[in-house]
Amino acid sequence: MSTLHTVNKSPFEKTSLAACLEHVSAGAAVLLLEDGVYAALTRTSVEGQVKSALDNVKVYALGPDLQARGLLEERVIPGISVVDYAGFVDLAAEHDKVQAWL
């Protein structure tokens, strides 16, 4: 049983990401999208939190949302995979269910 967790809120404004990371099981995947992609940036105050999650789960960020916000892929934390909409669909299909952290 593996779950795809989605986080679409900024980690600097809401606790959605923190709550998600505290509840994920090993082997799960976390997809950052919309304002959630800000958590994928290096040198932020939540970088440590995201990096330690990478030991446990796979983390993805939605490319179109990064581009819209002017965030270049080179600024994304190594280990986070950038996916497009087709990749989002694949992730949803590969996992047993999708859980959204709003």
Binding site: G63, A68, G70, L71
Partner: peptide
């Protein structure tokens, strides 16, 4: 202030969204 600073980033490209 806060997340408002993200409004001013360069290189915003929204065609894909």
């Amino acid at each position: 202030v806060d997340d408002g600073v993200f409004q001013l980033t360069k290189n915003q490209h929204t065609s894909a969204v």
